[in-house]
C-alpha cells in the first residue's frame, strides 16, 4: 500500500471522483492553472480541462452560489475556499441556501455540494489565514461537516462527501498537508460520514479530538505509555452529525475524558461532545470532563511567540492528558 501525504490523498480523491463521474467538477480561486495555493488541485486542469476545473473571481459568495445552482441542477461541484477564513462572505449561501434546500422544497430539490476549506494555524498566517470556523457552521442542521486527520480518511471522506446527496463541508487542515502521511490504498474506497474512529486503545484516559490536535495527542500518548499511562484516542472524523455511540463507547472505556480542538473553547465542538457525555453517562464518569482548546481570543497572532502561545502542541496536550490521568 503506497504511503502518501495528506494533501496528495485529497488530490487523489478529487482525481478519482472526476474520473468516475463526469458530473464532478472543481471551482475556486486559482484552482486551475496555478493548481491551488497549496497545490491541492495541481494537474487537474491538464487532465480534465478548464470546463471541469474553473478559475473563479475572488468572490466566495459567487463560488458557493454558483456551486449550489449547479448542484441543484444535478452536477456534483467541489467548491474550494482558499482559506476557511475567506469562507464568511459565502456564509449566507451555505447556511441559508445550501443547508435548507432539501427541507425548503419538501425533498423536491437536493444540493450535492462539497465545500473544501483549509482550517487551522501554525503556518505563520496571522489573523486571516489561521482560523478554525467549525463552530460557525456546527450548529446548522442540514449541513454535514467532516474534518479528517489521517491521509486515509482524507481520501475516503472526500469521496464520501462527493457522493453524498447533501451539502458537505470538508475541513482539511493546512498544517496536516505535509505533516501527516500514511497508507492510502490505491483503489476506490469511502469512509462513511458520521463514524468516528479509534486511533489508539487505552484504559487510563480517553482523548476525543479531530484534525491536527490528534497528531499531538498521538505523540503524547506514545510518551505517556512509557510512563505507564495508557490513552484511548478517538478521532471524531465527522463533526456533523456527531457519532454519539462512538463518543459514548470511548468515554465509557475510561470514565475520564479530555476533548481537544484548536477552535476556541467557548461554544466549540467540545462543548457539544461533553454535553452528550454528561447527558448520557454521568454515572460512569470518573473525573470532570476536561477540554483543551484554543484560547478565547479574537484571532491567531502573527508574531511567532504569540502564535506559539496560541497553538496547541505536544507538550500542552501531554500535560493535559497527564493531569487527567493523575486525577
Amino acid at each position: 500500500m503506497p504511503k502518501m501525504d495528506y494533501i496528495d490523498a485529497i488530490r487523489l480523491a478529487m482525481k478519482e471522483e472526476m474520473e468516475r463521474d463526469d458530473d464532478v467538477f472543481v471551482l475556486g480561486e486559482d484552482v486551475g492553472h496555478k493548481g491551488g495555493v497549496f497545490t491541492t488541485t495541481k494537474g487537474l486542469i491538464g487532465q480534465f480541462g478548464e470546463e471541469r476545473v474553473l478559475d473563479t473571481p475572488l468572490s466566495e459568495s459567487a463560488i458557493v452560489g454558483a456551486a449550489i445552482g449547479a448542484a441543484m441542477y444535478g452536477m456534483k461541484p467541489i467548491a474550494e475556499m482558499q482559506y476557511s477564513d475567506f469562507m464568511f462572505p459565502a456564509t449566507n449561501q451555505i447556511i441559508s441556501e445550501a443547508a435548507k434546500i432539501r427541507y425548503r422544497s419538501n425533498n423536491d430539490w437536493t444540493c450535492p455540494l462539497v465545500i473544501r476549506a483549509p482550517i487551522g494555524g501554525g503556518i505563520f498566517g496571522g489573523l486571516y489565514h489561521s482560523q478554525c470556523p467549525e463552530s460557525v457552521f456546527f450548529g446548522t442542521p442540514g449541513l454535514k461537516i467532516v474534518a479528517p486527520y489521517t491521509a486515509y480518511d482524507a481520501k475516503g471522506l472526500l469521496k464520501a462527501a462527493v457522493r453524498d446527496p447533501d451539502p458537505v463541508i470538508y475541513f482539511e487542515n493546512k498544517k496536516c498537508y505535509k505533516l501527516v502521511s500514511g497508507d492510502v490504498p490505491d483503489g476506490d474506497y469511502v469512509v462513511p460520514i458520521g463514524e468516528s474512529n479509534v486511533l489508539r486503545e487505552g484504559d487510563d484516559i480517553t482523548v476525543i479530538s479531530y484534525s491536527l490536535p490528534l497528531h499531538f495527542a498521538m505523540e503524547a500518548a506514545e510518551e505517556l505509555e512509557e510512563e505507564g499511562i495508557s490513552a484511548h484516542v478517538l478521532d471524531l472524523r465527522t463533526l456533523q452529525p456527531l457519532d454519539q455511540e462512538g463518543i459514548l463507547a470511548a468515554a465509557r472505556r475510561t470514565g475520564k475524558v479530555l476533548i481537544i480542538h484548536e477552535d476556541n473553547k467557548f461554544g466549540g465542538i467540545g462543548a457539544e461532545v461533553s454535553a452528550i457525555i454528561a447527558e448520557e453517562m454521568l454515572y460512569e464518569l470518573d473525573a470532570p470532563i476536561m477540554r483543551l482548546c484554543g484560547p478565547d481570543v479574537p484571532a491567531m497572532p502573527i508574531n511567532p511567540p504569540g502564535e506559539k502561545f496560541f497553538m496547541l502542541n505536544k507538550d500542552k496536550v501531554k500535560e493535559a492528558m497527564k493531569k487527567l490521568a493523575l486525577y
Partner: peptide, 12 residues
Amino acid sequence: SMRYRYSPAVQQ
C-alpha cells in the same frame, strides 16, 4: 483532600 470525593463511576 480528595480521599472522600467519590466520582459517579466509583460509586456506581
